[in-house]
Design a protein around this nucleic acid. Structure first.
Lengths: 166, 166
DNA sequence: ATTTTATGTCAGCCTTGTTGACTTTCCAAG
DNA sequence: CTTGGAAAGTCAACAAGGCTGACATAAAAT
């Protein structure tokens, strides 16, 4: 396969062809990764941007707009458009900060939590199936490579909740 | 960690929390995955869609528009717009099919191959660094999980060139 | 009192998806 | 041979969701 042994250590032959396969794997897999939520979102009048907002508000209830901006890596105008519709539709609640009243703290309403659940159930189902099919060792490797692929700032966001639920 | 042993077999505890980490890993890693090519594309007046077209024409020289459509999963109108600019700019050559003159066979010109190389060099550099950091076993697992996550049709496209260069 | 920070909003632009309508080409059934 | 349908490509128009720039407001910090 793609490995060889030298002095007891296993090495990878990182040919361009090997790397190209990794690149295409990312491309095709990401399509699958978003496919199920996308189908649900289409029924409402929402898009992937709404899903991302719901996801991270769910993950960190009470997060501020600014914090969300740095996680999502978009402009405030872009996020605001999405947030506006979610708030107007009663899926997200925006509360003025008590300590710093310039800040807005974001929470899912019951209705928002419901949609978030539906979306992440669909996404988790696929992830669970892939994990089961691949096995525990593969899952470990999957997470390790993905983490190594992140930009440092994104890795911080990722790790900041690393083992919070395990 | 996230594993346990029962009768010599290792099992995964697929808690929602574990799965959520996988989901976020995909999200953050994909951002890193596209970041370097995106920076290059910005300098030209191209976007990610152009990169994808160049990539798959490079991979399969002479491919038809229809074949490209099924790989990329967009409408022909959407692809056509991108293809048009690449052809007009002299990066892609479109040859009328000899057997079926409705078909167009696509090839990279020297100029197109050059840009493709620059883009994939950048993307491969990050992939190579991640592979090196994670190690061979992790790489194997990475590819296995990603493949399990694909839609069946995409998996076919992926596997169709599986070991062509290894 | 002034400046900085956090947020929101308006306007306008670009990329890249979409659908619908149309042409050209090919092929096959009559 | 003709005709009708399927396949490939093109043009036009629209929408989502990125972007920048400008500006308003409120609150915190200096």
């Amino acid at each position: 396969m793609a490995e060889g042994s030298v002095g007891g250590e296993t090495l990878l032959f990182l040919t361009d062809e090997q790397l190209r396969k990794g690149i295409e794997a990312m491309f095709f897999a990401y399509r699958g990764f978003t496919a199920d939520p996308d189908r649900i979102l289409e029924r409402m009048d929402y898009g992937r941007a709404h899903h991302r907002a719901l996801h991270f508000i769910h993950r960190s209830p009470g997060t501020t707009v600014n914090n969300l901006l740095s996680i999502l890596g978009v402009t405030k105008q872009s996020l605001n458009r999405v947030l506006r519709s979610l708030i107007d539709d009663g899926l997200v609640e925006s509360r003025v900060g008590r300590k710093d009243r310039r800040e807005r703290h974001l929470f899912l309403t019951e209705k928002g939590a419901e949609l978030e659940r539906e979306l992440s159930d669909a996404q988790r189902a696929r992830m669970r199936a892939a994990y089961r099919a691949a096995g525990p060792a593969a899952v470990q490797g999957f997470r390790t490579v993905l983490e190594a692929m992140m930009d440092p700032e994104m890795r911080r966001h990722y790790q900041s909740m690393k083992e919070s639920g395990s």
